[in-house]
Simulated scan of single mutants.
Amino acid sequence: MRIIHCADIHLDSALTTHLDKEKARTRRKEILDTFRRMLVYASDNDVQAVIIAGDLFDSEMISASTVNTVLGEIARHGELEVYYLRGNHDPGISIFAGRNIPKNLHMFDERWTYYQLNDMADESAAHSGNDERCNIVLAGIEMTSDNKNRIYDELSLRERDVNIVTLHGQEQEYGDAHVAEEICLDKLKDRGIDYLALGHVHRPKREKLDHRGMYVYPGCLEGRGFDECGEHGFMLIDIDEATGDMNTEFIPFAYRRLYDVQVDITGAADSQDVADMIAEKLYGDVNGRENDQARALVKITVTGGLDVESEIDMEYLARQFNDSFYYVKIADKTDLRVDPLKYVHDATLKGEFVRMVLEQDMSEDDKAYIIQTGIRALAGEEVWTR
């Protein structure tokens, strides 16, 4: 039996932190389309069940068209059984009020709910040795402030089954949960869990739970901000129903990828120097086919020390790379540096100004900023405040 485990899709996210309104609207449609493509992938690859471990939607502010599309796509793939556990971002169940809920969409609530994922093995046949299939069981519960600490004692699993448990929250090793989104892994050890299907953490993670099972965060289906760089997709679980053996594989599936590229531009004299340094690092990190590069969202963080007389135009730099990528942002994390020896024998007004500032009782950063601003003013250039 093949199962997809996904989470944190966050449909209808605003996405306006970095993108303009038009690109944000396009990006929301792309994320919805990735959800649609995932169901097509499931149908084409003999997947029988899809587990959504929370945060299918981003908030209560969900468009009717998005809800209708989700329900319509699930109904269209009637060969799949879809199990949806709501997360902390998801709206209440009333979001589906007045709509036809597909028969193949299954939900959870604040009590443990158990689903048999495969055709149940015949108990009498199993005892006689004529049916060696394993029962594959999915258990899930929506965590709340009321039930967050008692769910562990109430979980009931059979050792002989292949047990998948789905929860939405942040892992913690020991202790009681202080908020509904905390999951105590220690209390889930030695409970007969083969695969703990989690949601809430936006980067893929797969670790050993105990001698028997593993816990897995598939990460979000698509990265939305620069705290979600790297590959995104879902987990594909393949279970041998005869032996209960389980194989898992992360499937990269996002339409776009986000990159945060760090470039040290120490020693650069002007914007073209910086552009050359960025290009060398950027095109090495963002590799792949040309259309993949054009899909990428890139944050370029420039670091290092710059001489106060260097003229670096960050807007110019962004324009140099805009045509190559879907979105480019330049983050300036450089430090201004002053070389006192350059001005020791400078008899001009500039030299006198620099020496005067260097003698002041203030931080080196403030001195560098004041010197840079003064030098630009003396040259008749535009001056801006930080």
Rank of each mutant, 00 (worst) to 15 (best):
I371T: 04
E309Y: 10
Q372M: 12
D119F: 03
L188N: 03
I95C: 02
V50H: 08
N88I: 06
P204E: 13
A180H: 13
E231I: 03
C220H: 00
T26K: 15
I3E: 06
S145Q: 14
K350T: 10
R224E: 08
E381W: 05
G305P: 01
S271Q: 07
Y152F: 11
L19V: 06
R76H: 13
K333Q: 15
G192I: 07
P340G: 08
Y327M: 08
V286R: 01
R224C: 02
E364Q: 14
A180L: 04
L188P: 00
T385F: 14
R99Q: 13
D58I: 04
E222H: 06
T113C: 09
E30A: 14
L341W: 04
I3C: 02
A318C: 09
I9Y: 09
E249G: 01
A294Q: 14
Y84D: 06
Y327H: 15
N247K: 15
D240C: 12
L32P: 04
S324T: 07
M61F: 13
L306T: 02
D276Q: 12
Y217R: 01
T373C: 10
E81A: 14
G219A: 08
E123W: 03
G140F: 05
Y174C: 01
G78W: 02
G54S: 08
G230S: 06
I330N: 01
L282Q: 05
L185Y: 11
P204T: 07
D313V: 00
K187A: 14
G199T: 09
D12Q: 04
L282T: 03
Y195S: 05
D307A: 14
V201G: 00
A139I: 02
P102K: 05
A268H: 02
Y217M: 07
A180T: 00
G213E: 06
T34I: 06
E123T: 10
I95S: 02
N291A: 12
P340R: 05
R319Y: 09
T348F: 10
M356L: 12
E110N: 11
V302E: 01
Y174H: 14
C134V: 11
P91D: 14
R28D: 08
Y326V: 00
F250W: 06
Y327D: 11
G230C: 06
M38G: 07
N104Y: 09
H168F: 08
D44Q: 15
D270I: 04
P91H: 13
H232G: 01
T334N: 02
L155K: 08
I265F: 10
S124I: 12
E364D: 15
L85C: 08
E73F: 12
R224S: 00
I62T: 11
D8C: 02
L185V: 06
G219Q: 04
D292W: 11
D264F: 10
Y195K: 03
